[in-house]
Design a protein around this nucleic acid. Structure first.
Lengths: 235, 235
DNA sequence: GAGTGTGAAGGCCTTCACAGCT
DNA sequence: AGCTGTGAAGGCCTTCACACTC
């Protein structure tokens, strides 16, 4: 199917970002973009952008740039499974609900198909457009509905057993938000989103930045704050 | 203060994880741990763990291991600012509320001190133990209460202006959950948590894993699913 | 023997430098 | 001149291999 192989995790993450940045700029077949413009939007170097596009097999034209339509279909070729992929989310607490709200029905090729919880008050209905079932139905539904991915948003005490349940039910990848590392067979891909580490990391580097010398890019064009108004509900 | 310099981001993230894994195992001065045991918990190699501890200046003893108390104070020396650090969260939607719930009052050395939103229905009170203010108070409060970090959980349309406001108010680091990259001066450290990329990454690698050869560790000891019971509310 | 400490090697990822195209 | 495509170099991070210690 896709000719391209062995794309690194970092590149995959950037492709996902590029797509989101390119979509609003795709206005018909005549829309092009330069590597340095996309680089600015994505916060990376222009060379990095060109190397990533090399892997897609997308070629640009000097003094014209890359055709956005080509880029989008190239990225979709890599990122999207031809028949789509479904995820099950386990643990409809605050974080789980936030993810349901954020991802529900946003893309047709990848979406959260069902949510699960042990709390009867949460099951039986629909949350942010996603059906919520008791956890005891998980194994059955994962098999029957061909769910390939699991999203774990339960407290850390239950994360490992939920992971085991998802894996034996047949999912092939896990997105883990619990603040620990799951044991799992090598056939399962696990991506950890560690919010605590992220918080402590930004705290650490925000300190070391300002004290010692900094080497980063000079960042031309940082806007001065005018009194623009802020409105609209936050998600 | 700390003698150690130039610790890499990856190491900082692991130190944060190690601490969480070690805390429940710290039972007085007599508790020790081997590098390979912590490695198993953290999902990394034993060599990696020993190298990380080298940077802390923590020494282990062959056949005895590392004293957990030493590790915890070594990690705290690196990660925690002596006088503590405060964060402001902007955007009390689902995700913002989840973070408030997750982090509120969990550690005294690093915590979310105040939340901000433009929606009057959300401001004026307390959410998960955190005071919530109108966004117009942000600049004033950040300065007055010495808030060093900003957490951005607003829709992408407002993320850049919120970042600008936080930066001009004096924060030194940002934790950004909006699905784009913020423009910012080099003096500000920005950590992006890209939930969409994480979701698409796990989708991609869960496919490529099972199809082609896998090289990962054989993972001895994956538990077979017995019918253990799942209980307790999910967060 | 079992586990640590660490120089050296390896691998992955990014950037440099520059040739080539329009 | 302006921008792309890419070999080569560089940098960061992890793993190997092994001396050393209890």
């Amino acid at each position: 199917m896709s000719l391209v192989r062995d794309i690194s995790p970092r590149t995959i993450e950037r492709l996902s970002l590029y797509r989101r940045l390119l979509l609003p700029r795709h206005e018909g077949e005549g829309s092009y973009i330069f590597s340095h413009d996309l680089a600015e939007l994505a916060g990376v170097t222009a060379t990095q952008v060109r190397r990533d596009f090399m892997q897609l097999g997308c070629m640009g034209v000097p003094r014209t740039g890359y055709r956005i339509g080509d880029l989008l279909s190239g990225i979709s070729n890599i990122l999207d499974a031809p028949s789509g992929q479904r995820a099950a989310l386990v643990g409809v607490g605050h974080l789980g609900a936030a993810l349901l709200n954020h991802f529900s029905g946003r893309w047709r090729w990848l979406h959260i198909h069902a949510a699960f919880d042990t709390d009867p008050a949460k099951t039986g209905g629909t949350i942010h457009g996603c059906q919520c079932f008791p956890l005891t139905d998980l194994s059955h539904l994962v098999r029957e509905r061909n769910i390939e991915l699991g999203i774990i948003t339960v407290p850390k005490e239950h994360a490992q057993e939920v992971a085991d349940l998802l894996i034996t039910s047949g999912v092939r990848g896990l997105l883990n938000f619990a603040p620990l590392r799951l044991r799992h067979p090598a056939t399962i891909y696990v991506e950890n989103v560690d919010l605590t580490s992220a918080f402590e990391t930004v705290a650490y580097f925000s300190r070391s930045r300002s004290s010692s010398a900094l080497i980063s890019e000079p960042h031309r064009g940082f806007p001065s704050l005018d009194d623009r108004k802020l409105s609209g509900g936050c998600f």
